[in-house]
């Protein structure tokens, strides 16, 4: 058990999981060290509060530790862990009454992608906007979205994940990822233009024409 800890870089996830289950705290610590950066980056897309982000990541690892025996070594430990992180972040939102989770096949959501959404155009962020200002606007708009849409946008746009990886993480088909992403973008554009109409190319400063 201690032998594998002598060369942590050489230890693969499965080894570390087995050693953790055998009682090695250090092996679990190495797993946390290996994935903490990725999980912090993922979790901060669900909260702008540093303490909340840390809570999400901490709970993710504690949940993973408790369920470690159920981890199937055929699948990727990384995917398994990130799935727990996404669910933990969504649970936090639900508990705090933000953006309640809606069923994937909710007909209201399905009908949401009305053709009208696609006729409107949106501007790219003004070059004069600071990075922080752009991030602030984007986060405000994301807060308006149901979690299933927020999650797929976060994974695709911020995390730059491939469709297949998103499908694995969410346990859905690639076709579902594509359609969810399509609707999520429509929702995002709709909310962006509603909250910040100045980014509509047709915007005339709020005066009626």
């Amino acid at each position: 058990m201690a032998l594998s800890l002598m060369q942590p870089q050489a230890s693969n996830d499965s080894d570390l999981v087995r050693e953790t289950l055998a009682g090695s705290q250090l092996s679990f610590q190495l797993l946390v060290e290996r994935y903490q950066g990725r999980l912090f980056a993922l979790a901060r897309n669900y909260s702008r509060n540093a303490a909340e982000v840390e809570d999400i990541v901490q709970d993710t690892f504690l949940k993973a530790f408790r369920r470690l025996e159920t981890f199937q070594h055929q699948s990727s430990f990384s995917t398994w862990l990130q799935r727990i992180a996404i669910n933990t972040a969504l649970d936090l939102h639900k508990r705090r009454g933000r953006s309640p989770v809606q069923a994937v096949e909710d007909p209201e959501i399905l009908s949401d992608a009305s053709p009208g959404n696609f006729d409107r155009r949106v501007m790219a962020p003004d070059a004069r906007l600071e990075q922080e200002e752009i991030a602030e606007v984007t986060q405000q708009v994301l807060e308006e979205l149901p979690d299933i849409f927020r999650t797929v946008l976060v994974l695709r746009e911020f995390e730059d994940r491939a469709y297949q990886e998103i499908a694995d993480l969410l346990g859905v088909s690639i076709g579902t990822v594509e359609s969810r992403l399509f609707r999520a973008r429509a929702r995002f554009k709709d909310a962006l233009l509603r909250l910040f109409p100045e980014f509509d190319p047709q915007w005339n400063g709020g005066e009626s024409q």
Partner: peptide, 10 residues
């Protein structure tokens, strides 16, 4: 493309 530019690398 314009829409995706709102998602900058944090």
């Amino acid at each position: 493309t314009n829409l995706r530019r709102w998602f900058r690398d944090p």
